[in-house]
Amino acid sequence: MSAPPVDIGRVDRVLARHPAGVQGELINVLHDLQAELRYLPRQALERAASHLGVPEAHLFGVATFYEGFHLEPRGEHICTVCMGTACHVRGAPRLVEQAERDLGIRAGQTTPDMRLTLETVNCVGACALGPLVIFDGKYHGNMTPDRLGRLIGKLAKKGSE
């Protein structure tokens, strides 16, 4: 599935909020672009590089260094499994396995129909709730593989309606 075209006007409006030629703005620019576009398409990055006056290679190196930036389109829904230590000792790896099994994708991937992206995060600091799954921004604490399976199942049903 090819990525949808990028609205350059939206990209430029985001860039206009940041001073041109200031390399220190790079990470804030990437965050704002991603907030606008849900991911960082190549055209957006090329324009950001020229706006900030940094080589494209440099910008690409930075964007791929940080875990928070996504260079591929992400699914309609985001399921994030917290892999913090507290969640780990309370069974987070089993949650990832469950989700991977149910969705037929690996963590970091998106289902072929672009409905859901499965991600992991290294702790969101809500350790008392562990193990924790964040489904489209909503925290689901004390998660079990069985409950997660049903949560994902519900989504799949909605998809086939």
């Binding site: 892999m83 913090g84 230590t85 507290a86 969640c87 780990h88 290294n122 702790c123 600091g125 350790c127």
Partner: peptide, 12 residues
Amino acid sequence: DEGDPGAFMDRS
């Protein structure tokens, strides 16, 4: 940049 997994002092 409190990156330690299992830590949320600074956040709080």
